[in-house]
Amino acid sequence: MILITGASGLVGSHLAQALVARGVPVRALYRSAVPSFPGAEKVDWVKGDILDVISLEEAMAGVTRVYHCAAVVSFNPKKKKMLQHVNVEGTANVVNACLAADVEKLLFVSSVAALGRIRENVAIDETMNWSEETSNSEYGKTKYFSEMEVWRGMGEGLDAVVVNPVIILGSGDWEKGSSGLFKTAYDEFPWYTEGTGGFVDVQDVVRAMIQIMDSDVSAERFILCADSLSYRSVFTQMAQHFGKRAPHKKVTSFLAALVWRWEAIKARFTGKDPILTKETARTAAAKVRFNNSKLKKFFPSFAYTPVEESIQRICGELKELHNL
């Protein structure tokens, strides 16, 4: 039996689909409502939460492997305590439950944010870690401390591995998460930056996770990145596949500073997450490259899907999903 936390999210739901399709028995946590996706009816759904130690321990009964995908992803300064609570304390609970249940192996889905992604003069690799100088987000900080909980578990005898995905491209609820990038392109958001970042297909993330879990590899971390591209080129490709106008107005550092300040003021009155924050403005302007060679060294047969192919497929899936 395999347990998945965060099965309602982009990675967790695609992972559950892939495992169910292989005939693997899957158990997954849900908090309020059972998620709906192809194959969801074959999942053993258990109501619980990674912050609820009792329900987590009960969900671990008979489980041999755990994929920990649950996390809060936010760059809203007001969600600092929530990020720390769910990402760090929640991961500590998962690690402790795995140790108590004598689980064979844990795979933790971290993020490149935990590596300190504000590094413009060198390609980011797995030897790097978050620091005050190399990271500008509370999210990155909490993912780094979450990893520390996993490494602590390894020190106590837990067999575990960590994956650090870049921006994940996939079809899902485009009102939240990375699928929202596609909605931004569909809505013809006109602005672009000169920044670059890493991108990877959710299907590749899932394939890599399963391959790593099924191997004898332990106590390692792997960056999952198909390619490092400019944000402008990625949004332009999305817009073209939707038949929409591509971004055409350059965002200067001065304009970005004005926008994130205005968004912060607006968020105070609306209660909604700001579209742009000081953190995301800096990230969008940074020119970041990622070294993805380690995964290929450990798994020579693994090949990433070209980002252009991923965008074309996902745009088609979203058109069908949203009747566009």
Rank of each mutant, 00 (worst) to 15 (best):
L3A: 04
A7I: 00
A16K: 02
V20E: 06
G23N: 08
V26P: 04
R31Y: 00
R31L: 02
P35S: 11
S36C: 10
G39H: 01
K42C: 04
V43K: 01
V46Y: 04
I50W: 01
V53M: 11
I54M: 07
V63W: 05
V63M: 00
R65G: 06
K81R: 13
V95C: 08
N96D: 12
C98T: 00
L106F: 15
A114L: 10
N121P: 04
E126M: 13
M128F: 11
M128L: 15
N129T: 07
N129E: 09
S131Y: 10
S131N: 08
E132S: 14
T134Q: 12
E138I: 09
Y139Q: 04
T142N: 14
K143A: 08
K143I: 06
E149K: 13
V150C: 05
V166R: 06
G170H: 05
G172N: 06
G172E: 05
D173R: 07
W174G: 04
E175V: 01
S179L: 07
F182G: 02
Y186S: 07
P190Y: 12
T193A: 11
T196I: 00
G197K: 02
G198I: 03
F199L: 10
Q203R: 13
V205C: 11
V206S: 02
D214V: 05
V217I: 15
E220T: 04
I223L: 10
C225W: 04
L229E: 05
S230H: 01
Y231R: 02
V234C: 10
V234F: 00
F235V: 05
Q240C: 07
H241Y: 15
F242Q: 10
F242A: 08
K244C: 10
H248A: 12
F254E: 15
L258V: 14
W262D: 11
K266Q: 15
A267N: 11
F269K: 14
T270K: 11
A286Q: 01
R289M: 13
S293Q: 15
L295E: 03
F299D: 00
F302R: 00
E308Q: 11
S310C: 12
R313P: 06
E317F: 10
N323L: 14
